[in-house]
Amino acid sequence: MQEVTLRVNGEDYTRKVEGRTLLAQFLRDQLRLTGTHIGCDTTQCGACTVLMDGRAVKSCTILAAAADGAEVQTIEGVAEGERLNFVQQAFHEHHALQCGFCTPGMVMAATDIIRRHEGVLDEMTVRRELEGNLCRCTGYHNIIKAVLAAAEVYRRSKAPAQATAN
């Protein structure tokens, strides 16, 4: 066992982990943050996607010990209190989920994509960058729509006041 400290959704957690403990297991079993799903456990489905130091990663393929000192954001950390954040809101409005199992991973992956492209996205880019997230209900059409809508919200919120005035 070794001790690790991770900052998860803005709070520091120090816990003992085994060398083989995966980040997804650490989040789910030790911190009880079960919004991070484990779908395939083979690095394919992306349901376990979280942001680690700001970048979307598959937490089922990262050792908790290797994440020592990292800052992690999970689906539990995105809403503003009771209010859905802009990505969640767009998923809600565009009916971008059916069974909902893949949704936490989709939202976290979408957050990275939108931020990295500063909200300037087209359909092909979203489809390409979401390749690592599988939806077995095959609800991709509305997921893409939701990501594009959320990107638009993000872009507007970041636009300088002058540009908005024009």
């Binding site: 992306g46 970048r55 990663v57 598959k58 990262i62 992956a109 690592g132």
Partner: peptide
Amino acid sequence: IGDMQVRHM
């Protein structure tokens, strides 16, 4: 290579 999450690691 792979997908976005793979490229990050």
